[in-house]
Design a binder for these strands. Sequence first.
RNA 1: GCGGGAGUGGUGAAAUGGCAGACACGCAGGUCUUAGAAGCCUGUGCCCGAAAGGCGUAGGGGUUCAAGUCCCCUCUCCCGCACCA
Length: 882
Amino acid sequence: MDESGTTKAAVASDGSGSDKNEVQRYNPAEIEPRWQAKWDAQPNLYAAEPHTSGKPKFYCLEMLPYPSGQLHMGHVRNYAIGDALARFMRMRGYNVLHPMGWDAFGLPAENAALKNNTPPREWTLKNIAQMKVQMQRIGYSYDWAGTEIATCLPEYYRWNQWFFLKMVERGLAYRRSSKVNWCPQCATVLANEQVIGGCCWRHEDQIVEQRELEQWFLRITKYADELLDGLDTMPGWPEKVRTMQRNWIGRSEGAEVEFRVTAMANTPAITVFTTRVDTIFGATSIQLAPEHALVKEWVKTDAQLASAVDAMIAEQKVARETGDIGNIEKHGVATGKTAINPFNGETLPIWVANYILADYGTGAIMSVPAHDERDFEFAQKYGLAVKRVVAPNVDTDKLALPYGEEDDAVLIDSGEWTGEAVLEAQERMARFAEEHGFGKKTTTYRLKDWGVSRQRYWGTPIPMVYCTNGHAAGAGHEGVKAGGVVALPESALPVLLPEQIEITQEGGSPLGKVPEFVNTTCPVCGGPARRETDTMDTFVDSSWYFYRYTDARNSTAPFDSEKANYWFPIDQYIGGVEHAILHLIYSRFWTKVMRDLGLIANSEPAERLFTQGMVIKDGAKMSKSKGNVVSPDLMIEKYGADATRMYALFAAPPDRDLEWQEEGVAGISRFLARVYRLVGKYAPNVQYIEHGMHADEIAPEQFAGQTAAGAALLRTLHQTIAKITEDFNGRWHFNTCIAAIMILVNEIYAAEAAMDSGEVSSATIAELLRTLTLLLVPFAPFIAAELWKDLGETTDVFQQPWPVADKELARESEIEIPVQVNGKLATVIKLAADTDEAALEVAIKAASLADEKVAARLIGKTIVKHLVINKPSGKLVNLVVK
RNA sequence: GCGGGAGUGGUGAAAUGGCAGACACGCAGGUCUUAGAAGCCUGUGCCCGAAAGGCGUAGGGGUUCAAGUCCCCUCUCCCGCACCA
């Protein structure tokens, strides 16, 4: 090994006599396809080891895409984040599961069929093939062969059907008539979660209509409490997402109280829901929603009421359309009827009011104007009584109506409850109502059961039939009512989606027009039966796909429990925040159901969730309508896949929105070219190529007698390793990781002369370039593979262990100490790092006073304090002077 | 209205309470070239200036030896929820 002598002139060492200008230029268009072809030929390159391997596991998951046929920058970014992490964890020795698949059912396939006359299946599979090529071009390290799934294939969707049957058995799936959200454009039903501000989530300008339909529902409300309480045990999820889910579930504890309608013996009592039963003595009217059942009854005999109610409903519809719902003026109409307050026997007028929601609570409230803002506003308008029943603990003269109050406020004018504290009264009054049979403590939720029926073709067929002979369901099928609804046996699965089908724009389920599909036999009696023609919401597909990944080729079960239990929970889930409610709450529900079925041991699907920011351009989210879409293909063509994905990590920290600037991609490409040139220049000269020596054989003591230049480079190198390693384990600021690599490369360039003259040893150069290459793996795998090869390695760079930072080598030889005077920087002094700790403070004080810039600021002042501050990050001096 | 996030150069951004603006883009000047491109070098928060200096993290106040960072108030922008009784 040549430690002492001058390093041979780098450029000439290959004997070719080449000079600088002939060093090959970085050409990703040549490098990347070459490596990609090599990788694609190895289907198990990124396969995880079996669950029995005994290695620590790491399940790295990104949300699966809808196969639109075009990868967009949001995908590129999302998957670049996940891929960096997966590659890092592999190099750290983890058994990494990094799967990918396709959320392949859904309406666009049917729209495309209408437009292009292409069957949905064909269109979808073509898109998948197209997007897969795009993703492979970018070099993501997915285990395609072992995990790839497409939810539109029977191998997958049969398990949707299987789960559905399990849920039917357990009463978790049921059928009932219900008012549903109907999007005329989709010609199908939407779940509550898919209605955004009264409009369809897919058609932002389309008002959602209400229709009465027979629908299948999944009983997610059974898990409402667990879904809510579980959020408190999920510190690895963003607070934002947990808050959104909490609000969505909307648990509200209160009481129901029945108010009898005066002099109407046959009319059922009005049940109101309230969270403030303690204010019931302050109730001065009853308010019903326009759609309340009693109102529907009364309008039959009261034309005036009928027109007022109709106007209210019409007004709400308009308000919804214009987006003004929520701030339309409160108004109402008196019904002329009255009800009795069961607590004090008072007679209260019954009104119908436009601010009462039919689908929350009971659709009826007791109005307490003194203590509720909305009721107060309403009462003011119509001159209804305002009766205060809670005394605030502060000077009441200064309070404006309606009165809010503190928790320790007490009741006044409330009969036998007068003087009781608010919270105590709530408990006791609810119990009193229950004991006397006119109320109870109750909890309501904003969350509703999940309607999963869709009147569409391109989805999972619901595995139920309607027996013409009117069979009731078999024993144990408690979710199925009599009337001929029969669950298919498991042996009848999968219920295949017919492929020859005509898609038309007419409403109703397209499957209903396929007699071969519809007409079947009853599994119980063998008589004629009709199949369910609705298909499942596509959110069913994505509710459990990540379990399938652990055993994607299983043909006898959705997955093997042992495998799932090894891999779950997902260690890191990465995706867009737009799925904070829909997908992520359904997934949590499905996990709990699977746990209760005994399939898995975990109760939550993912340990940690990361929501990346949007990719924007010219200040707006990329979208076709805005015409600001940047094509990943074009970027790859111009700058290479490495530069494109690396820019996606460099331009902003992953959780923030990212403004796409093409000049930035060009900048990254230039940086990679610099790295390429550097390695190209020194690779032929790297010692271990000639001597077959590897860096791990270079003992640290060989760096001990380093020249200052070599030591400085190694110091930066190890600081860089430490910085990146720490970031992967913590805050994920990959932008600063890449910046750190740039600093390292800049520094190596600055030391070029020292490297050429032999001042920096060949062993050091080898260590620098090898390690630099390894550090690039998570961010730019193509160039990393190429450089590794150029450095003479024949091993797979992705299987190399991640470099370990050496604290000794990373330590500064000289410490810089900022000196402040009254907190403002005066100068920076330098001291040798090996100064004895005991003497250091004295030395620092002396040095700081000796500095002329400091002295200049001390003229005419007195030193009050001379502080030397010790921090892990370094030392600092502050002179407090007067 | 409620909840969450953010506000730092021309731009994207950096900064465990301790040197504000790392790294990059852009721009300017230089070098190389017949010329250009690429590369390389230098400069680049603002103000005045030859220099020394002064001012600067939306605005105002506070805590601290020390505040972009912590606390209080105000303003602006983005996201989510929105008459939830």
